[in-house]
Design a protein around this nucleic acid. Structure first.
Lengths: 204, 204
DNA sequence: AACAACGTGGTACGGTCGTATCACGAAAAT
DNA sequence: ATTTTCGTGATACGACCGTACCACGTTGTT
């Protein structure tokens, strides 16, 4: 058995096990023993690296948010600045929709955390839940660029439109999650709203 | 001690106790003993009227959805058909935002149920979560009426706009709930979207 | 008047959960 | 080479949870 283990790596391994089992059985149903089994380690190990369950949950959320942030940024970046602000905004918003299994898990677990944070002060204090303003700012900037280039509907308020698009994506995401709507239908609705923001005079 | 008690009334009393404590401490933290204490009855009584916890939760959701449906309908109705479709749509959507304590509790508990239903098949089978199509249909009708009266933006697709508005309201509602946004800010955004749907040609 | 069914309280049981304790082997330090 | 620290396992403990069981008074029925 190797000694002098990399703590950060182990914590990540365990946190990802937490996210997996939370995505499968729901965050409310995850116990320390489940996480240990999923990660392939003993219960004692989970206790060793995260002394308490609360700390495990906190770290799990932190890790989840970071991973998803990277994912969305990667997608938005791969569309590239070359493709124009409209394409960038679209891929940013679509990347946040629970279409594949990974983003579905993210949405479910993240929403679970959000709901938990309403009644659990320790979670509410975490910055990942209280400042999703990053996405809002990024999208607002994108819209302002498009506006300066004359690509947007006249009279558009960039910040309001950004808030609208993000809230819409969040609402649609939840709809998909609970099975009210298909990913395709949600995508269509989201594109429709984008079309309206980016339509130039005289079109339509 | 009175015998021959009204079962329906008792069940309602207990279900409302469930909703209250769920709104206060989170649905995940609700136990039978908590519900009993909140309702002012013994644990045995809760077991007597709802044999199992699952049945209690199911009934609680049913009751919650019914009460909120009445609330929204009452608000939309009080705006009256006289005030026009725009005002009716607005009060319908604003009534679903968690502004006061009652709707805040509703949103929190309802969202908790929604999240639970993703991983709990028994809850997902409930019709209150799987068909909120009623609101969508009602709003679509409203928009079609307005469309026929020439009150809406040209080229508007009533169903898509209804879906958009409802998803937007849901997303904004969650934002309010977790403290990202104030009710006022959310109301402004929602009104803005309504303005766009109802704007006539030549204005703007 | 006797009996059956309903409503209610108290309490106990089995299980699970988060956490704590004890023990031990392997690496690092001296 | 010895000692100390680190990583790991197994197991125990106390609390709580949902549920089941038992007993008793009250009300309606015959």
């Amino acid at each position: 058995m190797p000694k002098r283990v990399d703590h950060a790596e182990r914590r990540t391994q365990i946190a990802e096990a937490l996210v997996r089992v939370a995505g499968r059985r729901g965050l409310h149903a995850v116990g320390m023993r489940d996480v240990a089994a999923e990660a392939g380690v003993s219960l004692r190990l989970v206790q060793y690296y995260f002394e308490t369950k609360e700390k495990l949950l906190l770290y799990g959320l932190e890790h989840l948010a970071a991973r998803f942030g990277e994912r969305v940024a990667a997608r938005a970046g791969s569309a590239g600045a070359a493709a124009g602000p409209r394409a960038t905004a679209e891929s940013l918003l679509l990347a946040s929709l629970p279409t594949d299994e990974e983003s579905r898990t993210f949405h479910l677990v993240y929403t679970s955390y959000a709901v938990l944070s309403v009644t659990e002060p320790a979670l509410a204090a975490q910055p990942f839940l209280q400042r999703p303003g990053a996405a809002e700012d990024a999208l607002t900037d994108l819209l302002r660029q498009a506006q300066a280039a004359g690509l947007t509907r006249p009279g558009l308020d960039a910040r309001t439109e950004a808030i609208t698009l993000l809230a819409l994506a969040a609402g649609l995401g939840t709809s998909i999650l609970v099975g009210h709507r298909t990913p395709d239908a949600a995508t269509t609705v989201l594109r429709h709203q984008l079309d309206r923001a980016f339509e130039r005079e005289g079109r339509d």
